[in-house]
């Protein structure tokens, strides 16, 4: 087991900065921001607005991964909750719509958590069940078509703004703050890290590992539900076939870019969210660049590989500049 010293996430933040600068090079108006209908408008805002669903997913995913788990079902849960929200939006009030969609996400998370913690099924298998079945459930809800709605209340969650910031960005920051308060304001974070680092030792130290396991999957379900609501609100409809499709992989990638090991233990919520925005900054950059779409995936792979290599402690030593960053982080930085 590799021992990792606490980091302050310099490499992730540098990576995000570099990609934003690269975007500015391929598209000189990248940092232009103006106000359009009381809402900030520009490519930089797009990065955060479009990155919001994956950022939301990564907030739940980082906790699951810190517990040595993985949640493959988040994309399908997005589809389910988005479908529920869109189906109810024109006939029910917003609180009812949100309660139904978030409740469904909670139930999905509970299902995953019980399979993992109580029945002892491997997380990758347990959540694969809902990943496959969940999309089918979403299709049943929408009857295979794109369910559209006109409710301005729900639409606000996708296209509205608060103090100029797009609502999805505000929701992401809110969810991040709430999660941080929940895990770092209490001892849950320590318990999650201990359990992920050594589950047997943690159980012997009296930590209720089973309860916490169920808890992180429920939270992941809630985050996915919120992401699904945002995605539906954004396109004023629920597309069960495509909503959240493959986003579980982006969320896992965001967590890994954020420096959390897939073997569990130390985690950082803020850096996972930064990871999500790194991925989106890349996507937006590719769209702005005018490269032919056939190259999208290759460009993305090369950038991700570079970010991950820069993070690797073994390779880090070979890059003088990055080596300095690592030394600095050794002097006891703070975690998020």
């Amino acid at each position: 087991m590799a021992l990792r010293l606490p980091r302050i996430g310099t490499s992730q933040i540098v990576a995000l900065g570099l990609i934003l600068v690269a975007n500015w090079i391929v598209s000189p108006q990248f940092f232009d921001i103006r106000v359009q209908d009381g809402r900030l408008f520009g490519s930089l805002i797009d990065v955060f607005n479009r990155g919001a669903p994956v950022a939301l997913l990564s907030i739940g995913m980082v906790l699951v991964i810190a517990m040595r788990g993985i949640d493959l079902s988040v994309g399908a849960v997005m589809a389910i909750c988005g479908a529920i929200a869109a189906s109810l939006a024109d006939t029910h009030s917003l609180p009812v719509v949100l309660a139904a969609a978030l409740g469904a996400g909670l139930l999905c998370g509970l299902w995953n958590g019980l399979l993992v913690a109580v029945l002892g099924i491997q997380p990758i298998v347990a959540t694969l069940i809902l990943m496959v079945a969940g999309r089918g459930i979403a299709q049943l809800i929408t009857e295979g078509r794109i369910v559209t709605f006109t409710s301005p209340d729900l639409a606000f969650l996708g296209g509205g703004s608060v103090l100029g910031l797009p609502t999805p960005v505000v929701l992401t920051l809110g969810m991040m703050a709430l999660t941080l308060a929940l895990v770092r304001g209490t001892a849950l974070g320590l318990m999650i890290e201990a359990t992920g680092g050594n589950p047997r030792a943690s159980a012997l130290a009296g930590i209720g590992t089973r309860f916490i396991t169920v808890g992180v999957y429920v939270w992941s379900g809630l985050c996915a539900a919120l992401a699904g609501i945002v995605a539906s609100a954004d396109i004023l409809g629920a597309d069960a076939n495509n909503a959240g499709l493959w986003l579980e992989l982006d969320a896992i990638l965001a967590v890994v870019i954020g420096g959390t090991s897939l073997f569990g233990g130390r985690f950082s919520i803020i850096l996972a969210v930064v990871g999500a925005f790194i991925i989106q900054a890349m996507n937006t950059g590719i769209l702005l660049s005018g490269f032919p779409p056939e190259t999208n995936l290759v460009v993305k792979a090369v950038v991700v590989l570079t970010v991950l290599l820069a993070q690797s402690p073994r390779l880090g030593g070979h890059f003088a500049g990055i080596g300095v960053l690592f030394k600095r982080s050794k002097s006891g930085g703070k975690r998020s």
Binding site: D32, I235, N242, L287
Partner: peptide, 23 residues
């Protein structure tokens, strides 16, 4: 002048169009 994939979906169509508008 610009051509990108929107994967046949509304969400991607919207995202790609947003970037076209800015570009």
């Amino acid at each position: 002048v610009r051509s990108q994939t929107g994967d046949f979906t509304r969400a991607k169509g919207k995202e790609v169009m947003e970037s076209f508008i800015k570009a």
